[in-house]
């Protein structure tokens, strides 16, 4: 105690006073820092080390030499990717799937939310919601497995098509059906769950607007179009911006389950390419370079679409 007081006296009037206070504070909170430690180690090892690991995109990474010891090759992998015309296929497959997702999946939760919002029986509405949310909690492996069991060669849908058309359709192994299967699975799995955010936005609608519109003689559809839909406009824009940012992400966990040699003409997207090159073939540097390029484009897309949202008079993402 006395030494501490003496120490403090000695340092009085100098910048060191700050450090003494800091030391005392840290000592007081030592147990809190101990609690903080596991989390901080986790973030350094599993979040920041990989972030630093992006440098392998500019190296010829060999696991034996390590990230620091591998040879620096600059932009070699980026040039290598564009040297072969195959990159056009990867990019078009990715973009087609993304646009199909925006055209066919994106509006689905909005329409469903609007329809649920018009339900008069709240009990029935709740029952429907309970059923509609189920697929969201089912793992993607099970979703794809169910698809294989039903659409595969001995499945119920496969046989049904054969009966109706006279010839079967190879749903699971054809580039023509691949994209529709992916979109169909996404719609089935996520539409119900996707309504939540729009239903939340719909609870904020001013009810006086409906009353005023009714007095003016507006029917159900007109009220839906002129009051309900504008009320969720900013939520829709926000979701669209988020979607634009992930334009190049087709999601590898879903796609690599559905991709096979027979449908590779359609299933080879950038994400699948990164997985195959990096994880399956061990071309770590090459795959990282493609991944990095994708991230840079994604950030640019988010910034751009956010700017467009501002120009449209919406609040946007930030």
């Amino acid at each position: 105690m006395t030494t501490k007081a003496a120490e403090r006296k000695k340092l009085h009037g100098t910048g060191l006073r700050y450090w003494v206070k800091l030391r005392a504070d840290i000592k007081r909170d030592r147990w809190l820092y101990l609690l903080l430690l596991p989390g901080v180690i986790y973030f350094i090892v599993f979040k920041y080390l990989p972030l630093f690991g992006i440098v392998i995109a500019f190296e010829n990474y060999v696991p034996y030499s390590g990230v620091l010891g591998s040879q620096w090759v600059g932009l070699k992998w980026f040039q290598y990717f564009f040297k072969f015309p195959a990159w056009v296929t990867y990019l078009t497959n990715t973009l087609i799937l993304s646009f199909m997702n925006i055209i066919f999946y994106f509006p689905a939760p909005i329409i469903l939310a609007l329809m649920l919002n018009e339900m008069r029986s709240l009990r029935y509405k709740k029952l429907l919601q309970t059923l509609l949310y189920v697929p969201h909690f089912i793992s993607i492996v099970i979703v794809v497995s169910i698809t294989f069991v039903m659409f595969g060669p001995s499945g119920i849908v496969y046989k049904g098509t054969e009966m109706i058309l006279g010839h079967p359709i190879n749903y699971m192994g054809s580039p023509d059906t691949f994209r529709w299967m992916i979109i169909g699975q996404t719609i089935w799995k996520e539409t119900g769950w996707g309504t939540i955010i729009f239903l939340a936005a719909l609870t904020n609608v001013d009810t006086q607007l409906y009353e005023a519109a009714m007095v003016d003689g507006a029917g159900r559809l007109r009220r839906l179009w002129h009051i309900t839909l504008p009320a969720i406009r900013s939520t829709i824009v926000l979701m669209l911006i988020l979607r634009m940012g992930s334009m190049l992400d087709t999601g590898y966990d879903h796609l690599i389950l559905m991709a096979n040699p027979l449908n590779r003409k359609a299933s080879q997207t950038l994400d699948v390419f990164v997985y195959q090159q990096g994880i399956q073939q061990g071309q770590f540097s090459y795959a990282s370079a493609i991944g990095l390029m994708k991230s840079i484009v994604s950030v640019t897309l988010v910034v751009t679409s956010n700017k467009i949202a501002h120009l449209m008079g919406e609040q946007g993402l930030y």
Partner: peptide, 19 residues
């Protein structure tokens, strides 16, 4: 900030795998 930053930027699939 360390936590929030990691929510927006990640190393991607391959660097995570290497770690």
């Amino acid at each position: 900030n360390m936590v929030i930053f990691s929510m927006f930027f990640s190393g991607g699939m391959i660097p995570g795998y290497i770690v």
